[in-house]
Amino acid sequence: MIQLKEYTIPFVGLKQGLHQFEYQIDNTFFEHFEYDEFNSSAVKVDMEFNKKTTLLELQFKATGTVNVNCDLTNEPFDLPIKNEFFLVVKFGDEYNDENEELLIIPHGEYEVNVQQYIYELIVLAIPSKRVHPGVENGTLQSDILKKLEELSPKEKTNVNNNEETDPRWDKLKNLLNDKQ
């Protein structure tokens, strides 16, 4: 993965205290990660960069929308996202990013790249099941929804002794009865 210059922060020249950074993220950002799950994206990432004497504190806040396809109907829709992430950057003997909330960089480093953290912040804000809001409230009219309704299992039939059975299992039950 190529590190993009606009996401590299040279903190050595910054004064101690709070600094603000703002990033506008679209699909060209995700192309660098070879991530193509979004039809389009418009996400704003605000980052507060607090430089202290022995460490750096980074507070990420992402808000915006990504256009994705519904998992049920495959209809595209704009999904609003909102996510936050806090990262502490400390200095040590060698690079270590094993802890997700703590990054250790060597003492001689003078810059930190935040593109991976922005990528994860946005991707992890997406729910695992993406359902069109029109499906949830019943306003979406789609051929796929009509077909799903048509193919859904019908009500169970009643047998003589008032047991409810599914007609698909009757043939299998006959196989068991024939063996005896």
Rank of each mutant, 00 (worst) to 15 (best):
K5Q: 13
E6A: 05
E6S: 00
T8C: 00
I9R: 03
I9Y: 01
I9D: 07
V12N: 08
V12G: 05
G13K: 13
Q20C: 04
Q20K: 15
Y23E: 12
Y23V: 10
Y23K: 07
I25Q: 00
D26E: 13
N27G: 10
Y35A: 01
E37Y: 10
F38I: 04
S40G: 10
A42C: 05
V43Q: 03
N50P: 10
K51Y: 05
K52D: 11
T54Q: 15
L55I: 08
L56T: 02
L56S: 06
Q59S: 13
F60T: 10
K61F: 08
K61P: 09
T63S: 10
V66C: 06
N67V: 13
N67R: 14
V68A: 00
V68K: 07
C70V: 07
L72A: 10
P80S: 13
K82Y: 14
E84F: 01
F86C: 06
V88P: 00
V89E: 08
G92S: 08
G92H: 01
D93C: 09
D93N: 15
D93H: 13
E94K: 15
E98K: 14
N99V: 11
E101C: 07
L102R: 08
L102K: 11
H107D: 08
H107F: 10
G108H: 14
G108K: 14
Y110T: 15
E111N: 06
V114K: 03
Q115C: 09
E120F: 05
V123I: 15
L124I: 06
S128I: 14
K129D: 07
P133H: 11
G134F: 05
E136V: 14
E136W: 12
N137G: 06
T139E: 04
T139N: 04
L140Q: 06
L140F: 02
S142Y: 03
S142H: 02
S142R: 11
D143F: 07
I144K: 13
I144F: 03
I144H: 06
I144A: 05
L145N: 05
L145Y: 01
K146T: 02
L148G: 00
L148E: 01
E149C: 07
L151C: 07
S152G: 00
P153S: 01
P153F: 04
P153A: 04
K154N: 02
T157L: 11
N158A: 00
N158Y: 12
V159Y: 00
N160Y: 01
E164Y: 01
T165Q: 06
D166E: 06
P167H: 06
K171I: 06
K171C: 01
K173W: 05
K173D: 04
L176D: 04
N177D: 03
K179E: 11
Q180L: 11
